[in-house]
Computed example of a mutant assay.
Amino acid sequence: MSDNGSNGAGVRTALVVGGGVAGPVAALALRKAGITATVYEAYPTAADGVGAWLGLAPNGLAGLAVVGADAAVRAVGQPVPGMVMADGAGNRLAGFGGFPELPATLAMPRDRLFRALTDHAVAEGVRFVYDKRLVAAEETADGVTAHFADGTSATGDILIGADGIRSTVRTVIDPQAPAPEYGGVLSFGGYAAADSGFDVEPGAMYFAFGRAFMGYWRGPDRLIWFAGLPADTPPSPADVAQTPATEWLARLRELYAGHVPGEQLLRRTSPDDLMVVGRMERMPSVPHWHRGRMVLLGDAVHAPSSSSGQGASLAIESAVELARCLRDLPTPGEAFAAYERLRRPRVEAIGRNAAAVNRVKAGKSEHAPAFPAPEEMLRPLHFHRVEWEEKVTVDVSA
């Protein structure tokens, strides 16, 4: 398929609401499909400093390669190809060095990923408009108009809601759409001194389950960790933000007393090096992914929670798949239906698996989950590809 050619759905312009991960990738993929996309972001500037660390798996990198953004992202990521499963007593349960035929998973701060994708998209000619918070959208027979909080509006052939787990577009499409589902855990991250008294193999991500869960790996100059604090009734975002880091750190140290290596990592973490991420959430099954000329993308429709390690990668896959469907099918409605059929089974299965892990992190089980071998668990995740060069021929009536 040639780049920037005509597309089957007759779509020339797209409004992309949200400039995180899914939005810039969607705009790049749409451009490759011959559709001009403008990204509207609620923040007044690019979302620098937003969020903690994340992992970008080989399947996500493959999606970025389709739109030519993989090199830009590799430049800001740390390769972490391996994984080690352990229990909270320090016993190694399983290890995996990564698939030799695939690139390594990359770890990076979320804001660096945002910036790399935005800078690459701008360099490729994608237009970004900031301080545009969507408040409403209305359709006509041949277009859709987005209305923003500052009183301005924009019109395009389609509107794509890539506006995150608290998506406004989701409620415009369906006022009865479900809200994010709380996983019973408050998420934290932090940095500890590299000489914390135990061995951490470079290039390996460690997952230590037990009465409490902690993940960690060796960064360029220190250890980086992420952990959960079970809470049946979550505090409000305002209460989370107003609680001093010293108090959160004290509660984490109490919970992880006796945990290997959580106790040592937390002892070597200062309040200034604590990242308070907030409630661990996921999207339950969303009944309506699209309506008319509007469609949902990424976390707005299938946020699997950070326990999956797949949130950003799935958003990238979906962005490429959506553009491919718009390229090949005759109307937006048929393209959106095909996109949903191609994506829903995969993303919901991954979300259900992450929910099971969340129950362990929430303290509902004192034992490490009975995971399959890492190779078996990761193969269907990491080897998945959206075949851009193949024509979409999904039977949406089935």
Rank of each mutant, 00 (worst) to 15 (best):
Ser2His: 10
Ser2Ile: 11
Ser6Trp: 12
Ala9Met: 02
Arg12His: 06
Ala22Ser: 15
Gly23Cys: 04
Ala29Asn: 03
Ile35Gly: 03
Ala37Met: 09
Glu41Asp: 09
Ala42Asn: 03
Thr45Ser: 13
Ala46Arg: 12
Gly49Gln: 00
Gly49His: 02
Ala52Val: 05
Ala52Tyr: 05
Pro58Asp: 05
Asn59Glu: 01
Leu64Ser: 06
Val66Asn: 01
Ala69Pro: 06
Val73Met: 12
Arg74Ser: 09
Arg74Gly: 02
Pro79Trp: 06
Met85Gln: 15
Gly88Phe: 09
Gly90Arg: 09
Asn91Glu: 13
Gly97Asn: 04
Gly98Ala: 03
Thr105Gly: 00
Arg112Ile: 05
Leu117Tyr: 00
Leu117Lys: 07
Thr118Ile: 15
Val129Glu: 05
Leu134Cys: 02
Val135His: 11
Glu139Gln: 14
Val144Leu: 01
Ala146Lys: 05
Ala146His: 02
His147Cys: 01
Ala154Phe: 06
Thr155Cys: 07
Gly156Pro: 04
Gly156Arg: 08
Asp157Ile: 13
Ile160Asn: 03
Val172Ser: 14
Tyr182Met: 03
Gly183Asn: 14
Gly183Phe: 07
Gly184Asp: 13
Leu186Val: 07
Leu186Ala: 05
Tyr191Thr: 12
Ala193Asp: 14
Tyr206Ile: 03
Tyr206Thr: 05
Phe207Lys: 04
Ala208Gln: 09
Arg211Leu: 11
Met214Lys: 09
Gly215Ile: 04
Asp221Ala: 13
Ala227Lys: 03
Leu229His: 14
Pro230Val: 06
Asp239Trp: 11
Gln242Val: 08
Gln242Asp: 10
Ala250Thr: 15
Leu252Val: 08
Val260Met: 11
Gly262Val: 08
Pro271His: 00
Pro271Glu: 01
Asp272Arg: 15
Leu274Met: 05
Arg282Phe: 02
Met283Asp: 01
Met283Tyr: 04
Met283Gln: 08
Pro284Ser: 02
Arg291Lys: 07
Arg291Cys: 13
Arg293Ala: 01
Met294Leu: 08
Met294Trp: 04
Val295Cys: 05
His302Asp: 06
His302Phe: 14
Ser305Tyr: 02
Ser305Phe: 05
Ser306Gln: 14
Ser313Tyr: 02
Ser313Asn: 00
Ala315Phe: 11
Ile316His: 06
Ala319Asn: 01
Glu321Val: 00
Arg324Trp: 09
Thr331Arg: 08
Glu340Trp: 02
Arg346Pro: 09
Val347Thr: 04
Val347Ser: 00
Gly351Ser: 08
Asn353Ala: 14
Asn353Ser: 14
Ala354Gln: 07
Ala355Met: 09
Ala355Asp: 08
Ala355Tyr: 13
Ala362Leu: 08
Glu366Gly: 15
Pro369Tyr: 09
Ala370Gln: 13
Ala373Asp: 07
Pro374His: 03
Pro374Met: 10
Leu378Phe: 11
His382Thr: 12
His382Asp: 11
Trp388Met: 03
Lys391Val: 08
Val392Glu: 09
Thr393Phe: 10
Thr393His: 12
